[in-house]
């Protein structure tokens, strides 16, 4: 709604929006006359945004794509010679549910904690005191340069052990947060840098001190840039929480594995597992896409 209003305002030559909105956005791309009418259902130029297409076209094409992918996924199953035993697995639904809830809990806790780590690390990266900047750089490079699985093993069996952290869930959340904090600090750094230098200078010019500048000028503007990437990090975080099964955190994946081992119904355990993760991640992916679209307009 808001975007349309803005497009309408671009009639004046002095409008701040002219030139920023790519031409053709908001209008339906036209198809050359003389081509077969079916073309209107399936073919559009690559630069035409999916949002502006008619609903029937979007629904049809989405259904077609979904059908193709479902077929490709389904066909291998027809070659399997197994007898499905869903009932055996259904008896362990409580275990699944517990694991699922723990996965959600771990992910949300880790997202909050890793954002805290990320903010601290990003600020350290912009500190006047140089050693802090190097701490930030080394931390980010170490985390990004090693597999999460390896980080979990070393941090759990060595560091957490030495610090006397015995609760696996607590250790798991902290380890995930340590790792994701590094990625998030890079996201935040990029967000802060996206706020132009002249914004900082004009804040200083009207008398803001450094803290006020961060609080009232940088963060509110950086947040808009950061939100889509942060939502993307949450998706990764939810998926990567599965790796905590290696240190026996009884989250979703661990519990599914265990059920599979007890019932010998491996597939009947892993299919709901995949579905369970998708139920969590897909809405966030949609949200990310929505936020990305919004941040593009409101620069």
């Amino acid at each position: 709604m808001r975007q349309k209003g803005m497009v309408n305002e671009t009639h004046s030559s002095d409008s701040p929006r002219s030139g920023e909105i790519p031409e053709g956005r908001g209008r339906l791309p036209t198809v050359k006359p003389g081509v077969h009418p079916w073309t209107h259902w399936f073919f559009y130029p690559p630069e035409s945004s999916m949002r502006v297409l008619p609903t029937r076209v979007r629904v049809l094409n989405f259904a077609a794509a979904l059908g193709l992918i479902a077929l490709a996924l389904y066909l291998p199953f027809t070659r399997l010679e197994t007898t499905w035993n869903w009932l055996a697995v259904y008896r362990y639904r409580e275990k699944f549910l517990q694991g699922y809830l723990l996965t959600i809990g771990l992910s949300v806790a880790a997202l909050i904690l890793s954002t805290v780590f990320g903010v601290i690390s990003a600020l350290a990266g912009r500190a006047r005191f140089l050693p802090l900047r190097y701490v930030n750089r080394i931390y980010v490079d170490l985390v990004r340069g090693t597999p999460l699985l390896v980080q979990i093993l070393i941090l759990y069996y060595v560091t957490a052990n030495a610090l006397g952290v015995t609760d696996r869930n607590v250790a798991g959340v902290i380890i995930l947060s340590m790792s994701y904090g590094a990625y998030i600090s890079e996201v935040i750094r990029a967000g802060i840098e996206s706020v132009g230098k002249s914004q900082l200078e004009s804040a200083k010019a009207i008398g803001l001190n450094t803290t006020q500048t961060y609080r009232y000028v940088i963060f509110p503007q950086a947040l808009r840039q950061i939100m889509p990437s942060l939502a993307g990090q949450l998706v990764s975080l939810i998926k990567d929480s599965a790796l905590l099964s290696i240190i026996s955190v009884s989250e979703f994946t661990k519990n599914a594995q265990e059920t599979g081992n007890i019932t010998f119904s491996i597939l009947e355990c892993y299919l709901p597992l995949a579905a369970g993760y998708l139920i969590l991640t897909l809405p966030i992916s949609f949200l990310t896409r929505y936020l990305e679209g919004r941040s593009r307009f409101e620069t």
Binding site: G196, S198, Q199, E201, S202, A203, K204, A205, I206, G207, L208, N209, Q212, Y216, V217, P220, Q221, R224, E298, T299
Partner: peptide, 30 residues
């Protein structure tokens, strides 16, 4: 901030997340 100068930037550097009123009021509010 301590020289008592009003500075206007070439790019204007308005605070994008604040309304016109708040942009002007900001220097007084803080």
């Amino acid at each position: 901030g301590q020289r008592g100068v009003g500075f206007m930037f070439q790019s204007y550097a308005l605070f994008r997340h604040l309304s016109v009123f708040e942009n002007v009021a900001f220097g007084l509010r803080v």
